[in-house]
Design a protein around this nucleic acid. Structure first.
Length: 562
RNA sequence: GCCCCUGUAGUUCAAUGGAUAGAAUGCGAGAUUGCGGAUCUCGUGAUUCAGGUUCGAAUCCUGACGGGGGCGCCA
């Protein structure tokens, strides 16, 4: 790595001047005009040893310049004492060759080679709507899964679903008491909403639903289980359809009906040791281990396991099925505080598993009117959102005269890209105020912009092929902004994976796409009379590859034409 | 009341303690029938407030104000 070479060179010079041991950084400056790498070494040395940082920087530069590697074109002192390094044409030409050679593998790293990872995300509950919150979890989870895969790990995707509990009973009770027909998942979700309303308003319905709840747990009632099986089947089928549209394929499905009894057993075995009785319930005193934590109930006074007990059991169930080195659980941030308590309890029950577990929380997709609730029916379903986006995309497709083989498939690809991009472009953990028109853009900083740029590059490459111009990295053409970005792609992927932050990839790709579109507007790429044309085509191939690979990591499709 | 997260152009988002706070959108002005105008170029406009730490703060610390979430038997 050239960054390491620069760092080594600086260390060497510092030592020879008697300033060894200073801890400095070598990084990409925010501004391209400040070079490709920059160091604050002079500032730090001046602070410790005294003196003028600018003068010191000049001395360092003159020393460094004595043995400049051929990958470095020039070194400059800037501003208060920063030292900026500019890479040479040779470096960019070599990097471009590497990018072309590695093709679809360019961007892969080995930081997690040999590791097994399990990523849990989406987690929709049967009998309820698959709404835009699930869409958010799915999008982030899929991107993180792929980032971990690109780092060399073997990844298994897991989905955890609440198929038992009062929410299920409300839907089933509503069907049994009203005789509602269930032929699609939306019917089931509607019964859930209606059942929830009655549960709060009608005492006799509430008693009936509670009775149904007990029967679901106990088994044996034909009517109850007939409705239960039908509702579960219909909603799960719908979820599968959504996963297909979104590009997710789960390896494991976990259900609460399984984690519940196991979690209960784990807690009961450790009463008096880790857990204790309080007002008839079994609780964990989080505050005894960490002042920021609080007490949470693991078993209710009816000895039913809560979310916390189930989660504890789930960690072990997962491990027994797939002995992971890394377990990533992605949820909305409303459960962040519970998860901290669960993790603390897990440290005591399964210390090895707790160390391997990472909780990543994302913000909520909020409506301008406030919080979304499937209980009151104030939800935006994922299906509706995708259909609306498709309608908007179709208008654009119909208006264009380009030949598209399967317009419906393309509309879906572009619509999903727009939605996923709007979720992935921001750093995880923050809420998104969801406003359809504002969130879903097809222009500028958007998913379709990246797809468009990819398709455009692809089209240029077809033209180059027709003109028999094959890509070849040359060293006559001045370096472009694209080249100054392209070689950074693997480090971008690595940082995004370490921070579980897909938005780092998004920001990079949109910057790269912008630099390519700028280049495109200024240069004729395919030109048989231009001896630099093969080089420009090579640049186009590299950009096309990185966009393709980057979009793949994000879980966004890259159509060949659009 | 207590705990956690959070406050950046009109709006939606960026910015590993670093340099002139970047994009997009909106608004205004433009791009020779030149490889895809879902594009490109120019202009406009922001760190909630008050202290502190630091050579250097949107970023770290303290306080005020605003927003969101959570505070034992739902998840």
């Amino acid at each position: 790595m050239i960054a390491d070479a620069i760092k080594g060179q600086i260390s060497h010079v510092l030592e020879s001047l008697g300033y060894g041991g200073t801890i400095f950084v070598v990084e990409h400056p925010a501004e391209m005009t400040h070079g490709d790498y920059s160091t604050n070494a002079a500032l730090l040395v001046a602070k410790e040893a005294g003196g003028d940082p600018r003068e010191l920087a000049k001395r360092l530069v003159s020393e460094i310049s004595k043995a400049l590697p051929e990958e470095i074109d020039k070194v400059e002192v800037a501003d208060a004492g920063f030292i900026n390094f500019f890479l040479s044409r040779k470096f960019f030409t070599d990097s471009l060759k590497t990018t072309l050679e590695q093709g679809e593998k360019f961007g892969k790293t080995a930081s997690l080679v040999g590791k097994k990872a399990m990523v849990e995300y989406t987690d929709p509950n049967p009998f309820k709507e698959f709404h835009i919150g699930h869409l958010m979890s799915n999008t982030i989870g899929e991107a993180i899964s792929r980032l971990v895969e690109w780092s060399g790990a073997e990844v298994r995707r897991a989905c955890y679903q609440g198929d038992v509990g009062i929410h299920v009973a409300k839907a089933v009770a509503e069907k049994l008491s009203s005789g509602a027909e269930w032929s699609a998942s939306a019917d089931v979700a509607r019964s859930y909403t209606e059942g929830s309303r009655k549960y709060e308003e009608d005492v006799s319905f509430r008693e009936f639903a509670n009775e149904v709840n007990r029967k679901i747990y106990a088994g044996g009632d034909r009517d109850v289980h007939g409705a239960y099986d039908l509702g579960k089947k219909l909603t799960l089928e719908h979820f599968e359809k959504m996963y297909k549209t979104l590009g997710t394929k789960f390896d494991f499905y976990f259900f609460e009906s399984r984690s519940a009894p196991f979690g209960k057993k784990l807690v009961e075995e450790r009463i008096g040791d880790i857990f204790e009785e309080s007002d008839g319930a079994i609780v964990f005193r989080g505050e005894r281990h960490d002042a920021k934590l609080h007490t949470r109930v693991f078993l209710t006074k009816d000895k039913l396991p809560t979310y916390e007990a189930k989660e504890l059991g789930l960690a072990k169930i997962k491990y027994d099925l797939y002995p992971y080195d890394l377990s990533i659980v992605i949820t909305g941030n409303e459960v962040s505080d519970y998860f901290k308590v669960v993790l603390k309890a897990m440290e005591l029950v399964f210390p090895d598993l707790a160390k391997k577990t990472n909780h990543i929380s994302h913000g909520m997709l909020r409506l301008p009117t406030g919080k979304m609730s499937s209980r009151t029916g104030e939800v935006v379903s994922a299906e509706w959102l995708i259909e609306e986006a498709k309608r908007k995309v179709n208008e654009k497709i119909e208006a264009s005269d380009r030949e598209i083989a399967d317009k419906n498939a393309l509309a879906e690809q572009v619509a999903v890209a727009a939605i996923k991009y709007s979720i992935l472009k921001q750093s995880p953990g923050k809420d998104i105020i969801f406003d359809f028109d504002k969130s879903l853009s097809f222009e500028g900083d958007s998913g379709p912009y990246l797809q468009y740029t990819h398709a455009r590059a692809n089209s240029i490459l077809e033209k180059a092929n027709e003109a028999s111009i094959s890509p070849s990295a040359g060293d006559n053409f001045p370096e472009t902004e694209m080249e100054r970005l392209l070689y950074r792609f693997p480090e971008i992927v690595e940082r995004a994976e370490k921070e579980f932050a897909p938005n780092i990839v998004v920001t990079f790709l949109v910057e790269l796409a912008g630099s390519f579109n700028h280049f495109y507007a200024q240069e004729q790429i395919v030109d048989v009379g231009d001896k630099n044309s093969p080089h420009k085509v090579a640049l186009s191939v590299a950009v096309r590859n990185v966009l393709k690979n980057g979009l793949k990591i994000l879980g966004i499709s890259a159509p060949e034409r659009m």
